[in-house]
Design a protein around this nucleic acid. Structure first.
Lengths: 208, 208
DNA sequence: TTATTTACATACATTCATGAATGTTTATAA
DNA sequence: TTATAAACATTCATGAATGTATGTAAATAA
């Protein structure tokens, strides 16, 4: 049974990507042989080599599926006009990010692979760049939104927008790493939402 | 030339560890063969196997050299009595951590290896634990210090010590990861000190 | 209908890393 | 002084992973 239809071929391609994610997550990228991945997908290495040039290309395909939609979703909140307080947009955006991370096992697996199951050397050095760039983009975006908040007089006086942005930037990055790198993060995940609220509250105008 | 004296043997042991660090940093842990490490140390694999059971043991030896002193140094500030404002102790402790990271290439290399050049699977899963535990210890410690600050009336009213601790915890973790995982962190490293000050300032009593 | 691809499976050659076994020299203890 | 063992170097056997080459059956274009 070979020579499937195009739709069937596309299906096996997706199954290979899914299998790769599972194997990467379990074994780490470098110990994930194409044989293991193929077996997990119910095909042979021949199929894998047909669809992907090598392990690196497979890795990037797996990553692509998850990363871009994530940026899109969080940006939708960040740049939304429906918040009259820009700080609410930032809070909603960050909350949404961690909500997806909590709800989607696929997303969580991919992030865990990229954070603690992949070595950023050789053909994977570019991965670091690909993580780093969205991170810096995020910094630039929230800095703009913090500035809007300041202009509207909704940022606590004495706080510089750029300073607030960098602090939130580090906070978000740290929260992500703490959540994923310690599996004891199970108890942390319950507190994520509250932590974000507390973090944002510190830069809001005191209520009384 | 074999059968060195004990001191000479101890020296080659250290050279193997140093070589391992360089090779781990350049190639990533899984692509670092014992042959490469041995050659970098100017010995053969025989010497490596004499001093260490396998790559994992060598890895842990390398890590040990750097990690424990780091915790000790930062704790010295955290638990010091010479600050009458506990918030100063926290700020000094975090500042010290990043100062060492900036000044010592060895420390930086080891942290970079552990953060982005090692896959936490198999015999290395315990590494995650070993990073996670100090992280949680740090959280517990700063929570106590924040509580002291609150008791002394030196924590900005409305901020819960535990909340402040968790926020600082995430901030510190994020700053570390951002510094090491993006090599564009070169421009970040200049701002570290200021970022810490800003972060702490947000939880101090407003000066006027 | 036939020829040609497509979408794989199978087989093979090669490289490479590991671990163990063994060899060798010299410090050191007795 | 000699026997022992420490501190390596060298050699070997083995397995595992990769990439490529080839085989093959069905889909599709002509």
């Amino acid at each position: 049974m070979v020579r499937k239809t195009k739709e069937e071929a596309e299906q096996t391609r997706k199954e290979i990507i899914h299998a790769a994610r599972r194997v990467f997550h379990e074994c780490g990228v470098s110990r994930s042989t194409l044989e293991k991945i193929a077996k997990a997908a119910g095909v042979t290495r021949g199929a894998v080599y047909w669809h992907f040039q090598d392990k690196a290309e497979l890795f990037f395909a797996m990553r692509e599926d998850v990363f871009a939609p994530m940026v899109e979703r969080t940006d939708a909140y960040l740049l939304s006009e429906r918040f009259d307080n820009p700080l609410d947009a930032i809070e909603a955006s960050i909350t949404e990010f961690f909500r997806v991370l909590e709800d989607s096992a696929v997303v969580r697996e991919v992030f865990e692979i990229m954070i603690s199951r992949c070595e950023y050397v050789g053909e994977f050095t570019s991965v670091e760049e690909e993580i780093g760039r969205p991170a810096y983009d995020f910094l630039a975006k929230i800095e703009r939104v913090y500035r809007q908040a300041a202009d509207k007089g909704m940022l606590r006086p004495g706080i510089d927008p750029m300073d607030a942005a960098r602090d939130t930037w580090a906070f978000t990055s740290g929260l992500l790493h703490l959540l994923l790198s310690c599996q004891r993060g199970s108890d942390l995940s319950q507190k994520v939402s509250a932590m974000i609220s507390v973090h944002m509250a510190m830069r809001r105008i005191p209520s009384a």
